[in-house]
């Protein structure tokens, strides 16, 4: 827990440092028509860096604990990496196909549901999404080769 706190605060502090650097480039003073672009971010970032330093100091004096237990973190990763993969697939295959693959994979792999249920849901949900968003509300979704082949 302590390590996680200090790492997070340091990362945020570094981010603040980056913002300060960029604000200085833009100018933090008074321009021809009021404060320059860097004025507002500069002060925000400066206070943030100070606050992050305080958090680091507070946490370094506190007893340590675990941020997350290994056993509990496994299911989190199990949700996270298929989701990342699914978004990656979306770039190539479009939302509908990627969603079908992702839903099917996750239901079968984690839930061990029967194939019939898996197939019905993983085809039905993207189809329903298509009808609701694309047809009804006219909100376009990313499309891939399959949709192109079908003429959309």
């Amino acid at each position: 827990m302590r390590a996680a706190e200090i790492i997070t605060a340091s990362v945020l502090g570094l981010l603040g440092g980056l913002v300060i650097a960029d604000s200085l480039r833009l100018g933090i003073g008074w321009g021809t028509d009021g404060p320059k672009s860097g004025f507002f971010p500069f002060w925000l970032a400066l206070i943030m860096v100070v606050c992050c330093a305080i958090i680091c100091f507070q946490e370094s004096r506190r007893a340590t604990g675990t941020f997350v237990e290994r056993e509990k973190f496994k299911p989190v990763l199990k949700v996270l990496w298929p989701a990342v993969l699914a978004v990656g697939l979306m770039e190539w295959l479009g939302l509908y196909v990627a969603a079908a693959l992702y839903l099917g994979f996750y239901m079968r792999w984690v839930g061990r549901h029967s194939w019939s249920l898996v197939i019905v849901l993983s085809l039905g949900v993207p189809l329903a999404t298509f009808l609701i968003f694309e047809q009804w509300f006219l909100v376009p979704m990313p499309k891939g080769p399959l949709e192109a082949w079908l003429g959309y």
């Binding site: 949700v79 989701a83 699914a86 979306m90 839903l103 239901m107 839930g111 061990r112 949900v125 979704m141």
Partner: peptide, 16 residues
């Protein structure tokens, strides 16, 4: 509804 169905559904909805 079983969790293994809800989770990917919610994530897909969020992505949409």
């Amino acid at each position: 509804i079983p969790f293994a169905i809800l989770t990917p559904l919610i994530i897909v909805v969020c992505a949409i």
